[in-house]
């Protein structure tokens, strides 16, 4: 789901989104529908449809003009050009553009809304009430990760590779015989 993937092959986006996004963020294209919860630790642009919860611990979530979320969303900053059917929480601010359609509660210490936006629901701007609501809804999810479970590799989907150690049993020696000198291979990892 990286930005590189989305930029590949025949321009999957009919129109570039008007939503302000950092260039190094990830994005979900307009022909993608994800069912299930989505957790990310980088900025995210949604032009497709998500049915489920979207949680960005400390990054920006942008829902593009073609984007749609059916479920709850949490991020540090949320910018909405598209549609959200569910509650939106932001630690810092929520910007609702004029093309946005929102049905649900909007909770952030700072909220901006362009005239013409469709909003049916509530806007909570009391920091104490927001803190309480976020804690109740996302308390477990927002706990800081324990150091020992942090992956050392930047590719989160690949499990951390075992540290290469010199083993004296013959089976390991044979398996490593035609691999590179470091011993950091999938077969070596499998033998652990």
């Amino acid at each position: 789901m990286s930005a590189e993937n989305n930029q590949a092959a025949n321009n999957p986006y009919p129109q570039p989104s008007q939503t302000a996004m950092r260039r190094d963020g990830a994005s979900i294209g307009p022909k993608t529908h994800i069912k299930g919860d989505l957790h990310a630790e980088e900025d995210l642009l949604i032009e497709g449809k998500i049915t489920g919860m979207v949680v960005l611990k400390s990054n920006q979530l942008a829902v593009g003009s073609q984007g749609r979320i059916v479920g709850t969303a949490f991020a540090n900053v949320v910018v909405v050009d598209g549609t959200i059917e569910g509650d939106i929480y932001a630690a810092e601010r929520i910007a609702i553009k004029k093309s946005a359609r929102i049905q649900g509660a909007v909770m952030a210490p700072r909220v901006s809304l362009e005239d013409g936006a469709h909003l049916r629901g509530s806007v909570e701007m009391d920091p104490d009430a927001i803190k309480e609501a976020v804690q109740a809804k996302f308390g477990d999810l927002l706990q800081p990760s324990r150091p020992e479970v942090k992956p050392s590799s930047p590719v989160a989907a690949v499990p951390p590779r075992p540290v290469a150690v010199e083993r004296k049993d013959e089976a390991v020696k044979d398996a490593a015989g035609d691999k590179d000198a470091s011993g950091k291979t999938e077969s070596n990892a499998a033998s652990k």
Binding site: P109, R110, V111, L113, E114, G121, S122, M125, D126
Partner: peptide, 17 residues
């Protein structure tokens, strides 16, 4: 409206619309 939300934002309140 933008002006309404801005007014209530300064008051740190909740608005049911």
């Amino acid at each position: 409206s933008q002006a309404g939300i801005a007014l209530f934002n300064d008051m740190h309140c909740r608005v049911d619309i």
